[in-house]
Write a protein that binds this DNA or RNA. Structure first.
Lengths: 181, 181
DNA sequence: TATTGTTATACTCTATAACTATA
DNA sequence: TATAGTTATAGAGTATAACAATA
């Protein structure tokens, strides 16, 4: 399970306030509000590129591990295989990734980025960087690193795995059978 | 629209990673991950009291404005009136709040906390405070205030209203007709 | 005719489980 | 018999719109 973009439902923000004590004085309250806002901001920033945060995440994983199979993606994305099908379908229909049959075991797909997919991914990454800068403009430059440090510490306290390199993070939690590619 | 608890869907966390650059170095990425975790932690902490974050929020609003009507709650909670019905139903069935007809205009309900409701709310508030402390244990004491300050600044940049006193925050955005109680 | 609250309906997202094809 | 991927189904959660009561 990779940490990730919070789901910011477009139609209507499902937000609920704690309203006790001073909300502006609660780390939990502020984090959940801001987390939602950050998620939504990212989603909006990414929209012009034609990607959802989830598609972006999937493409990043494929980029890091070309030839990865759908089943493996299941873990870091934290979604069941049945849902992956649709997401991969969308990206394939857009010509951003392709499914190649693995000749050695024809049950597996090997996912690859197309040239167009790589270009789109690069554009999306630039957009993500720009969004990060825009989001952080209210901060003093000197404020940024300490903030990140505090957030990292809180994340560790919540057992949130931070980096998690795709597919490779926990290669053999149960170690069943031959590792699919 | 009040800032609020992020929706942490129980069945399965809908999380998606950005996975570009170092996620542990992105404020946006960390915030959305942590926001989700914070939201979930709060939800879990509140569960033993028998309240969802949304119910808790509603009760806090009623506590601050006894006799408030359902329609007014719509704004700070950011949900349509039709959904409010169910939430109020639940709380009423549990005997935590009651609907009284407003004799002056029998279209309105006047919502009030019951004695049991007040007791439950107090318990929930204690739980929220405890949860806040637990969540923040990874932080050095000296780290906490600067973190809050940075978060507040980011929230302001995202136009997130912080305190928002229930029902009273934006009493007349359009000013249509007599203000319901 | 307008407004509060309610009910009905439809739509989206999701997970679980049945299915296929390969092995 | 077991596994990768797919399709089918059902259950939440939600918004929109029609509705009833009151003004």
């Amino acid at each position: 399970m990779i940490p990730g973009m919070n789901k910011a439902r477009r139609p209507q923000a499902p937000r609920v306030g704690s309203a006790e004590g001073p909300p502006g004085g609660s780390v939990v309250f502020l984090l959940s509000s801001l987390g939602f806002a950050a998620s939504r901001a990212f989603q909006d920033a990414l929209a012009p590129v034609g990607l959802t945060p989830r598609q972006f995440a999937l493409m990043n994983l494929v980029a890091t591990s070309e030839g990865i199979s759908q089943g493996v993606l299941t873990q870091p994305l934290g979604i069941p295989a049945s849902r992956l099908v649709g997401i991969v379908d969308e990206l394939e229909n857009k010509g951003l990734i392709e499914r190649r049959r693995n000749p050695e075991d024809r049950r597996y797909y090997a996912l690859h980025l197309t040239a167009k997919g790589r270009a789109t991914l690069n554009r999306a990454r630039r957009v993500a960087r720009d969004n990060e800068e825009r989001f952080c403009t209210p901060l003093e430059p000197s404020e940024r690193e300490p903030l990140l440090e505090s957030l990292r510490r809180l994340a560790a306290g919540q057992q949130l795995p931070l980096g998690v390199h795709p597919a490779l993070a926990s290669p053999d939690e149960d170690d069943h059978g031959p590792a699919p590619m």
